[in-house]
Amino acid sequence: MNPNNYLILAGILFTIGAFGVVLRRNAIIVFMSVEMMLNAANLAFATAARTTGTLDGQVAAFFVMVVAAAEVVVGLAIIVTIFRSRRSASIDEANLLKY
């Protein structure tokens, strides 16, 4: 089975994630889209590990998961904080930091 297929799948998932980030307004869904993009990257890492015959790619994917977990904790805390003050989870509402 051609490993390129895995990479193409990773690319499709990444692109869908990017669409989610730019199109959705709910901060939590945007966040999920980011997670989707990270997962796509992980898939590419795992594919690379198998094609090269080393485990380094899998370790990298593992680190990505760790970082993603940390990011989710902080990001969700921020979303909750913003929700508390603005009573909304829409990222368009948090637009005070501008020109």
């Binding site: 980030v21 730019v22 990222i91 637009n95 930091l97 020109y99």
Partner: peptide, 20 residues
């Protein structure tokens, strides 16, 4: 040009996407 800095996160995300 300042208007580009409109405070909307999604606009910035689009910019990043365009760069990518």
């Amino acid at each position: 040009g300042r208007k580009l800095q409109n405070g909307y996160t999604r606009t910035y995300a689009i910019t990043m996407l365009a760069g990518a």
